[in-house]
Structures are given as structure tokens and as C-alpha cells.
């Protein structure tokens, strides 16, 4: 049953890893504007499509 030490250790490390990543994501401002990126994504597609047409 000594494996419990390892599993708990690993799980805590993994959990802390995600916590740190999440805090970094907040810090980088990812959650400040949740609308514009959704629109921006569609525009990029549009641009690519138009370029493809040109090449065809």
C-alpha cells in the first residue's frame, strides 16, 4: 500500500500543475474578452477561403 504515497504525490502535483496553468491563463487576459476571438476565428477562415479561390 506504499503506492498511496506515490499516487497522492502525483495527483497533487498534477493538480497544482493545472492550477498554475489556469492562473497563468487568467493573468494573460484570456477571460477578459470572450466574444471577439469567436468572431475573429471566423474571419480568418474567410480570408483563407478567398485566397484558395484565387489560386484555383
Amino acid at each position: 500500500m506504499e503506492v498511496v504515497y506515490i499516487t497522492i504525490g502525483v495527483s497533487v502535483i498534477v493538480a497544482i500543475f493545472f492550477l498554475v496553468i489556469f492562473i497563468k491563463a487568467i493573468k494573460s487576459g484570456q477571460y477578459e474578452d470572450t466574444y471577439t476571438p469567436s468572431v475573429r476565428m471566423l474571419f480568418d477562415d474567410e480570408l483563407v477561403n478567398e485566397n484558395n479561390k484565387e489560386h484555383n
Partner: peptide, 12 residues
Amino acid sequence: SGVITSLVNFPK
């Protein structure tokens, strides 16, 4: 061409 990037924040 002098503009490198422009980023819109729509809600704001």
C-alpha cells in the same frame, strides 16, 4: 504597412 497588429475588444 506601419501597423503591425490591431486587436479589437468588442465588448469594450
